[in-house]
Write a protein that binds this DNA or RNA. Structure first.
Length: 265
DNA sequence: ATGCCGTATGATATACGA
């Protein structure tokens, strides 16, 4: 089973990229973030044409939005109102073998890394705290869970181009890294990307639009994640960040992360 | 942190991304 997480930065602006990606990598399941489209405007036909018969979408106008497309059947689960907002940042589905997939888009958090001065940063921290409490509440040793998405935190030193220079930059501040660590501890989550590419190797999934040559400057960050619970330990067989997608004409600023599992959900 | 791009919107300026 091949699973993908991809912050697409507008699904409608990126349909050609999706076609190319699916033809090249033939995923079974794709989780998108930042679809930026309401459910009634979602370009579903493009996905059924690609063979994704099963889907769950939760979007809003302009901002946010998550979606799951799958060739494997699932049932959609109810999800909480994170921070009391219905802002379309989480989808959860369960496959027939009981594996539960969670697709998250954690708030970006704005520019100033101080919850007193910046409501967006306060929202990000609260969102992560709620995730910790929610998964702690849900925890059972035999839970087969996969969590993917744009978590907007690059936790390891080599998840960013300069650990030292980004310590006060939102996405790599110690408080965010600690909050992400709390979520990981809440269900003993395993970081699948770092299982395949351990520190101190550099590992990024996002590069700013603002550099002239993203590949040459390579000032990236690992904001996208794939985690599994211990009940699924050993099932991932390969991981790849698709740099080619980031290098195409008018790309998303995030690259797709591909993980292969020895699983038949 | 540098550098200033990209998406979306009752748009031609502004919010947001990170």
């Amino acid at each position: 089973m091949r699973l993908v997480t991809w912050n697409i930065n507008s699904v409608r602006a990126r349909l050609g990229h999706v076609d190319h990606f699916v033809e090249t990598h033939n995923p079974d399941i794709i989780c998108f973030q930042e679809t930026k489209v309401t459910d009634n405007e979602f370009p579903l036909k493009a996905f059924t044409k690609l063979g994704f018969e099963h889907y769950a979408i939760a979007g809003q106008k302009s901002y946010n939005g998550v979606a799951i497309f799958s060739k494997i059947p699932f049932t959609k689960n109810d999800t909480p109102l994170w921070c009391g907002k219905d802002d379309k940042r989480h989808l959860s589905v369960t496959f027939e073998n009981g594996t539960e997939l969670h697709n998250f888009y954690v708030p970006a958090g704005g520019d100033i890394p101080d919850p007193e001065q910046n409501d967006k940063f306060a929202h990000k921290l609260s969102f992560m705290k709620e995730m910790t409490a929610w998964f702690a509440e849900k925890k059972k040793d035999d839970n087969k869970l996969i969590l993917v998405g744009d978590l907007n935190v690059a936790p390891c030193e080599n998840d960013v181009w300069s650990h030292k220079q980004l310590l006060k930059i939102v996405s790599h501040t110690p408080i965010e890294v600690a909050h992400l660590g709390d979520i990981m501890a809440s269900h003993d989550w395993i970081d699948v990307m770092r299982h395949f590419v351990p520190e101190p190797e550099r590992l990024y999934s996002w590069w700013s639009y603002r550099s002239r040559d993203w590949k040459k400057s390579n000032k990236g960050r690992r904001l996208d994640h794939v985690w599994i619970t211990p009940a699924l330990e050993g099932t991932p067989t390969a991981m790849m960040v698709d740099l080619e997608a980031r290098d195409r004409e008018k790309p998303s600023d995030h690259a797709p992360v591909i993980v292969d599992f020895d699983l038949a959900p």
